[in-house]
C-alpha cells in the first residue's frame, strides 16, 4: 500500500479537460515531481489532491483510505499539507503569526478559554509560538518574525509558506513551484530543505520549473501535457523520453532560444 495513491484523477472546466485520467503513487520519504509546460494542469492536480477542487472523476487514496472529495481542513488533519504557486499569505498578520497558524490543529481548543484568556489557552498558544519560532529559524526568517508579512520579499514569502506547511508535521507535502521567483542562493537553500524534509520520511510532491533541481532531487517524475500524463519514471528515463522532449524540454529549449 502506497502512502498516497492517485487513481485516474480528472476535472473539466466548462468543457476544458484541465486534468484527465492521471494516476501515480508515492511512498514515505519520496520526492516525486510533476513537470509539464504552463497550463498542463499541474496546479489543478494539486488543487484536487489537497481538496480545494472536487475531482470530476477518479480516486484519491491516503494511507489506503478513500479521501476523494474530502475538504482541505480534514485532509490537513490526515497529514496532507501544501504551499501555493500564487502566494496565499495572511498579509496583515506578522510573519510569526503566519507560521503559528500552521500549528492550528495543535493550538486550537475551547473558544471560551480563548475568550477569557484562561491558562489552557495561553499554554496552547505558547507551545505553537515556540514551534513556529524554530521553524522560522529553519527557513531563515527568524529575524523577520515580528514584521508584517506583507512587507516581505517574494522569496521570503515563499519560504514562509514552506514553514507554515511544515508546521502541520505533514506526512505528504505538496510544493507548487517553491523556488519560483527566488535567486540562486535561495533556490539552493530550498533545494536542501526539501531533501532534508524528505529524509525525515515526508512524501513530497513537487512542481518546479528549475529542471536541474528537479533532475537532481526527484526519485520519480510524472510528466503532464494538456492535462494528461504522457510519461513517468526516474529522472534518467524521463529525460530520454521522446514525447517528453517534444512536449516539454523542447518548449524549454525554445524559450531559451528566445531569450
Amino acid at each position: 500500500m502506497s502512502l498516497l495513491e492517485i487513481k485516474g484523477l480528472g476535472i473539466e472546466f466548462g468543457g476544458l479537460r484541465a486534468v484527465h485520467d492521471v494516476s501515480f503513487a508515492m511512498n514515505e520519504g519520496e520526492i516525486v515531481s510533476v513537470i509539464g509546460p504552463n497550463g498542463a494542469g499541474k496546479t489543478t492536480l494539486f488543487n484536487m489532491i489537497s481538496g480545494v477542487y472536487l475531482p470530476g472523476s477518479g480516486k484519491l487514496m491516503l494511507e489506503g483510505k478513500d479521501v476523494t472529495g474530502m475538504e482541505p481542513h480534514l485532509l490537513a488533519r490526515r497529514g496532507l499539507s501544501r504551499t501555493f504557486q500564487n502566494l496565499q499569505i495572511f498579509q496583515q498578520m506578522t510573519v510569526l503569526d503566519n507560521a503559528i497558524t500552521g500549528y492550528h490543529l495543535q493550538e486550537r481548543g475551547s473558544v471560551l478559554a480563548d475568550l477569557l484568556n484562561l491558562p489552557s489557552s495561553r499554554h496552547r498558544a505558547e507551545a505553537a509560538r515556540e514551534g513556529a519560532q524554530k521553524l522560522l529559524a529553519r527557513v531563515g526568517l527568524a529575524r523577520a518574525a515580528e514584521q508584517e508579512a506583507g512587507n516581505l520579499s517574494y522569496g521570503a514569502l515563499k519560504r514562509l509558506e514552506i514553514a507554515r506547511a511544515l508546521a502541520l508535521s505533514p506526512r505528504v507535502l505538496l510544493l507548487d513551484e517553491p523556488a519560483a521567483g527566488c535567486n540562486a542562493v535561495e533556490t539552493e537553500e530550498i533545494d536542501a530543505l526539501i531533501a532534508e524534509v524528505a529524509a525525515e520520511g515526508v512524501a513530497i510532491l513537487l512542481v518546479e520549473h528549475d529542471m536541474k533541481m528537479v533532475m537532481r532531487i526527484s526519485k520519480h517524475i510524472v510528466v503532464l501535457d494538456h492535462g494528461e500524463k504522457i510519461a513517468e519514471g526516474d529522472p534518467a528515463t524521463v529525460s530520454q523520453n521522446p514525447a517528453v522532449i517534444a512536449a516539454y524540454l523542447g518548449t524549454q529549449e525554445a524559450e531559451h532560444a528566445d531569450s
Binding site: E71, R77, Q88, H104
Partner: peptide, 18 residues
C-alpha cells in the same frame, strides 16, 4: 488567529486545517 487567517486567505486557512 484562525479568524484573522481566514480573513487573509480562506484557501490557505483551510489547508492548514482551519
Amino acid at each position: 488567529r484562525a479568524l484573522r487567517a481566514l480573513h487573509g486567505s480562506e484557501i490557505a486557512a483551510r489547508t492548514v486545517g482551519i
